[in-house]
Nucleic acid binder design. Sequence first.
RNA 1: CGGGGCGUAGCGCAGCCUGGUAGCGCAACAGUUUUGGGAACUGUAGGUCGUUGGUUCGAAUCCAAUCGCCCCGACCA
Length: 443
Amino acid sequence: MRMTRYFLPVLREVPSEAQITSHKLMLRAGMIKQAVSGIYSWMPLGLKVLQKIERIVIEEQERAGHLPLLMPTIQPASLWKKSGRYDDYGEEMLRIRDRHNRDLLYGPTNEELITEIFSSHVKSYRDLPLTLFHIQWKFRDEMRPRFGVMRGREFLMKDGYNFDIDMKAAIHSYNRHMVSYLKTYERLGLKAIPMRADTGPIGGKYSHEFLVLADTGESEVFFDKRILDFNFGISKVNFEDIDECQKIVDKWTTPYARTDETHNPETFEREVPKEFQGVSKAIEVGQIFYFGTKYSDPMGALVTNSEGKQVPVHMGSHGIGVSRLAGAIIEAFHDEKGIKWPVSVAPYKVGIVNTVMGDQVSCEVSEKIYSELSNVGLETIYDDRDERAGSKFTTMELIGIPWRITVGPRGLKKGMVELTNRHTSKSEEVPTDNIVSVLLETV
RNA sequence: CGGGGCGUAGCGCAGCCUGGUAGCGCAACAGUUUUGGGAACUGUAGGUCGUUGGUUCGAAUCCAAUCGCCCCGACCA
């Protein structure tokens, strides 16, 4: 992408509406624009990041055997009356009425709708287990939206729902989700800790939240510091293997890790040696639930089991806040100059800064590198604006491009360009002819 | 929803107390000179001062209502 052809409305000063780092940086980098309190437009750069996160989430869900579908944002109130949540959900649910006076709502979540889809098509235990998910915009009319996309009213969420014949099978689904989530966060560059959680309005007995430690987080968490050393690694997982999944879950859920909702000071003191006791603020980036027959009972989602009996299906649901993750990643990766995207979600991997637009050689070299990088499929943003070099460096740093190629008179004579890493701030001189292969090796 | 703050040009702000018809920096546009760390000069353009009503000869300024945004608290991906 050429900067001169792009729409990148960066700001030099911070709009007064922003308080926390991620919100400030998202506004300054031209990623988002507020439409109304808690509701944002995603500008081209922001959308690019959002889609990268989405892509990783989808890949890891599909790898775990979960099937994508897409449900509507608008749902009939009748379904929610059936489950009893139309009254329970409260003011957070946006209720609307169509021209025929039908009661509708903008979905805050999809248990009812998915259960109806399930029950109208699945009748036999032979079709189980089944897990469906989608990534879709949700609306929850928060009392106080804040912190940009971290607590918006409209937000993009991956929500998934599993259907199993009994509790044992449903627990495996629960475990499978935990494993897939751990992998997902790791690919996003985040250290997310599963913590025992309350079930809230979703209901049920089992639940874990996934939290990323950050000073700007809204939850207070208590944990055994040794869990921070856990690494998922790139290990392959057989998601069908009940024992293997259980083992991973056991490993990650054994150390004490709880939010202020479930925290028990006595247990904490008893189980965790003083030197490993960790207390921090954290950002919640996902939650998984097992809630048994809470929805299948009232909504009549029955399947025939192997004995020919009609039994309510066991269910769970699972959410990852995709739009929130964009903010959470910035909270985890930034410095005083701006964002430092992990390569996996960076909107562009490489930025080319042509420092002397008036110089023919500098332009030719920049153009050549740009087209070569584009040809090999490395996403590249080329700053071809007629601006001062300093201004271009600042922009690249602000928007967090991991690798910067500087083309300018200093190296040109020697046939060199400069390659700078945004995370380490280290620079090296690379022969112009080798730059593409060097990048292909490192990125 | 309770408590607090703020709405003046795209962004950041001054002016308001003590009414006299709007200003600064950055950004934008045109030109000249610049060209490896947010360039300089010259010029141009851009605002019914959130909205409505009131007081007044006269309101950004005083009064009232209303809308919006932000912060703190109770709730949540």
